[in-house]
Simulated scan of single mutants.
Amino acid sequence: MMTYKHLLIEDYSSLRRIVINRESKLNALNTPLLADLHRALTDALDDDTIRGVILTGAGPKAFVAGADITEFSSFDPSQGRALALDGQTKVFDRIHNAGKPVVAAINGYALGGGLELALACHIRVAASHAKLGLPEVSLGLIPGYGGTQRLTQLAGRARAMEMILTGGMISAAEAYDYGIVNHVVEPDELLAKAEGILQQIAERSPNAIRAAIRAVNASLGHVKSGFATEIEEFGACFGTPDFKEGVDAFLAKRKPNFKSDV
């Protein structure tokens, strides 16, 4: 089994647990971490002994509390589009279209790219203290890893609009009511619940599981044009004064003062 700088890999019978291990940074996503995730997912999906994957975060505070903003604070629109396209192709769509079930065990904050990572999974289980949100508009951005599409598919247009346009957080209980998460459990029951779901799936036909995932995904319709639109709009945000103001405010730990109307 490969070793990774930012991940811990643990096997339990026919299940693999991938733990995002940047606890000091609340498991924030950056380019090396996404590269690790791509390799780890590819390895798990190519391993015939693995029947399902649990994705979770290290520590009690965060699943993934967003992206590492300092990494893209100076990006221009073309770099922003490339960032979204690369992440979507190598990680988020890889999970979404995986022929094996991937369950997100949301052990704390799932914000921005972290919520998008959970949304890409086939099933989501949340600890009762978890908080979920897409705060990108506070940075002069929009979600760029499928959030505008997958949240709308799960929660509906009205809920998705409110969450994305306000940038606010919701509780695990609210996420369950919205249809975003399948189950809410106490923190010490989280991994056992996720493993129990996967164990039940592992008893079924692998060929049928793959076929069912493809069929369910096909029901979503023409999502590719929506994802492509999101990537273009995400990239375009990097060329606006609002993006510079949002990032500057975040790094300075102050409230942003957005003035532009373009």
Rank of each mutant, 00 (worst) to 15 (best):
Y4I: 03
I9E: 08
Y12F: 13
S13I: 03
S13L: 07
E23D: 09
K25L: 10
L29V: 06
T31Y: 09
L34W: 09
A35L: 06
A40T: 06
R51F: 03
G52K: 05
G52A: 06
G52D: 08
K61N: 12
K61E: 03
K61L: 10
F63S: 00
D68I: 00
I69S: 01
T70D: 12
S74F: 14
Q79N: 06
A84H: 09
L85T: 12
Q88S: 06
N97Y: 11
Y109S: 03
A110G: 14
R124A: 12
A126H: 14
A127C: 04
H129E: 09
A130L: 09
K131C: 03
L132Q: 04
L134H: 13
V137H: 11
S138L: 14
G140Q: 13
L141N: 07
G147T: 10
Q149P: 00
R150I: 04
L154C: 10
G156C: 12
A158I: 10
G167A: 06
G168S: 13
G168I: 08
S171K: 07
G179H: 08
G179V: 05
E186G: 00
E186H: 09
P187T: 02
P187H: 11
L191C: 02
K193Q: 05
E195C: 03
G196C: 02
G196A: 05
S205T: 05
I209N: 02
A212N: 08
A215I: 04
S219G: 13
S225M: 07
F227Q: 00
E230G: 03
E230A: 01
I231F: 07
F234R: 02
C237W: 12
C237E: 01
L251R: 11
P256Q: 13
F258G: 01
K259L: 10
V262P: 00
